[in-house]
Computed example of a mutant assay.
Amino acid sequence: MSQLPEQPSEGPVPTSADVARLAGVSRATVSYVLNNNSTVRISDPTRRRVREAAGELGYVPHAAARSLRAGHTRMVLLPAGNHPAAPLHHRFFHELESGLRRLDYTVVQHGSLGLDAEEAARAWAELRPVAVVAPGGIALTPQGIAVLRRSGARAVITLGPQPVEGAHALVMDEREVGRCATTHLLERGRRRIGVVIPEERGVGVFAEPRLAGARRAAAGGGARIEPLPLRYEEESAAALAARWRTLGLDGVFAYNDDYAMLLMRALQDAGIDVPGETAVIGAEDLMLGRLLRPRLSSVRMELATAQPLADLVDRLVRNPGGEPERHDLLSARAIPREST
């Protein structure tokens, strides 16, 4: 006969009524305190007593029940893209998540890998979010936006290089990064400029606008742009460096700092002087690039918003039905160092 230790029986799930009895307040007061309702005035000692009682009992509010009472959830859905996120996007989502939680929203990340535009919208709609913030790289169509709105989403917001009809847009115009990098090279006297285009799947959403921005700047400065496909591999970089002199380039915008460091090392190994023969600039201004020799020039990218991102989402949720808004988020400036 098995001699397994007895498992302690679990007690009943604590309720708001239990919290109210222990704290000596009404159930309504418990609800107001634990749901961070700021419309009702409750003293700090009472709030503290309710929270201590809830902690002692292990009680947490029931999100589904709260949603039923309110007629909508407090869930903001952040779909995960199919491409590697840049450091700026990591900072964006960290700031957004922290701010939304402060405003009592539940933030849920949704894995959307492999879903097409319509499948993704239906999958998100099943969760009944009050808002969706969809990053670039995930296709979102006007039809998908309509599905989300019919399911109760009060705000559908896209984050990417271009707005989508029917949705609010947080525009991060990556063309500005390519323009800024190329302008810097032009100011250094470079007129035959390569632009690295990563061959990795899903990076095109960033790379193509950066190339377009580089071409626009070059056209105004009488320069030539040469797209340079490159995989993030030493072998690919070495192969490109081996034919570098046949390309006749005197400058290169290497998409970002990771590709810039990879290519610069390969160029140096091939005997190409940086910046003597070829100036190199990246983007995102990573610390590691400053530790190289020569130190890597880069484009520093920053978010420029008139109000905190979470407050912006909250306002759009509270005021549904208005005309789609556009907010330009991205600012960029070249940081010159020894590689150019």
Results as ranks from 00 to 15, higher is better:
212 A>D: 15
36 N>K: 10
239 A>G: 12
322 G>A: 14
276 G>W: 06
175 R>E: 15
241 A>R: 05
269 D>A: 13
101 R>S: 12
31 S>R: 06
98 S>M: 11
319 N>C: 08
85 A>T: 11
170 L>G: 01
307 Q>G: 07
238 A>S: 15
5 P>M: 04
123 A>L: 10
130 V>E: 09
300 R>Y: 01
138 I>G: 03
318 R>V: 00
282 G>R: 04
243 R>G: 13
34 L>C: 10
218 A>W: 04
292 L>P: 06
46 T>A: 10
177 V>T: 09
276 G>R: 11
173 D>E: 12
284 E>R: 06
29 T>F: 05
245 R>G: 08
32 Y>R: 11
35 N>Y: 03
128 R>K: 14
146 A>P: 05
36 N>S: 13
192 R>Y: 04
191 R>D: 10
203 V>S: 14
282 G>D: 07
334 A>V: 07
151 S>A: 15
187 E>D: 12
48 R>Q: 15
237 A>Q: 06
173 D>C: 05
44 D>H: 10
16 S>N: 10
245 R>M: 10
143 Q>N: 14
5 P>N: 08
225 I>Q: 09
219 A>C: 04
28 A>E: 08
50 V>S: 12
319 N>K: 08
308 P>K: 05
248 G>N: 07
271 G>F: 08
266 A>K: 07
325 E>M: 11
178 G>P: 01
111 G>R: 15
92 F>D: 04
143 Q>S: 13
246 T>L: 09
89 H>E: 13
147 V>R: 15
131 A>S: 10
326 R>G: 12
85 A>M: 13
327 H>L: 14
25 V>L: 06
76 V>S: 01
282 G>K: 03
330 L>P: 05
161 P>Y: 09
107 V>Y: 08
124 W>K: 07
241 A>N: 07
58 G>Y: 05
63 A>G: 09
195 V>W: 06
241 A>F: 07
308 P>A: 06
330 L>C: 02
62 H>Q: 15
3 Q>D: 15
237 A>P: 02
9 S>T: 15
48 R>L: 13
131 A>T: 00
5 P>T: 02
55 G>K: 09
54 A>N: 05
121 A>K: 05
223 A>H: 07
75 M>E: 03
133 V>Y: 04
68 L>W: 10
26 S>N: 02
146 A>E: 15
42 I>D: 02
68 L>T: 00
168 H>Y: 06
335 I>R: 08
76 V>W: 07
167 A>N: 02
21 R>V: 04
68 L>V: 02
30 V>G: 11
